[in-house]
Design a protein around this nucleic acid. Sequence first.
DNA 1: TCATACTGTAATAAAATATGTTACAAATGT
DNA 2: ACATTTGTAACATATTTTATTACAGTATGA
Lengths: 135, 135
Amino acid sequence: MISGKFAITIHILTLLTKFPNDFLSSEFIAGSINLNPVLVRKEIANLKAHHIVESKEGKNGGTKLAVNPSNITLKEIFGMTFDTINLGYAKNTPNPDCPVGKKINQNLGLLYADINQKISLQLDDITLEDFSIQF
Amino acid sequence: MISGKFAITIHILTLLTKFPNDFLSSEFIAGSINLNPVLVRKEIANLKAHHIVESKEGKNGGTKLAVNPSNITLKEIFGMTFDTINLGYAKNTPNPDCPVGKKINQNLGLLYADINQKISLQLDDITLEDFSIQF
DNA sequence: TCATACTGTAATAAAATATGTTACAAATGT
DNA sequence: ACATTTGTAACATATTTTATTACAGTATGA
């Protein structure tokens, strides 16, 4: 379930933070990530749905932040790109006639929920500004 | 990068904990996970390499725990099935001529290292016995 | 000693997911 | 008008994960 979604989204947002006054084109952003511009636009569509960025179509169009980078944390960005973090489940439904098979996913779910909570606390302490300032 | 490896391995180990005196066959285990027995044997090969289980070939063969389930934690199991957990990296090498592209993977790496440490601490508090006793 | 039931492992196939490409309508600045 | 850019769909390719088949090797016990 883990893809480059979070990394790409953070990369986009870091660039937008670095150029707060410009509408950056998907082509420009894609050049920094080394990724297809269409995929950049898809991630941006997701960010727009969460009202984190705003875009302008047409010539000289592009995308810029719609929020102050000190007012958004990595937890929120994480929430936009992942359901939850987990260590995976077996693909097929385990055997419900086995006591272990019957409860394994439930028990893994509890474990993963704990993990998520810890990670969320940690990510909630880091703002986009904190992250971007490292560059 | 996340597959069902951890979940499958935990499932196997929970079964072995529940039947500490038996050599369980890959077929039996596969029936509980609802997974191909060859894949079960592959995960068992990994556990054997880490000296967590022992196998017996031939008729009435199978696999049993080689350690006391109260002496092994989920952290160790995690370490056998994952390199590290992370929220992913973009697939392609980012543009080294961009200040953000140049450092993005390094900075994500630092973030992910922190996350891993937290998860490890948490998983190190849960033994295989603790986990198995829930079933 | 022979049939049976396992492990171990390789080779290959299929399925699922992720990434990439092409295409083009719609919007907007100059 | 023209150039440039977003938005989005449709399709193609690549990668990863899971499944299957096959079979040599090993132990058990009738």
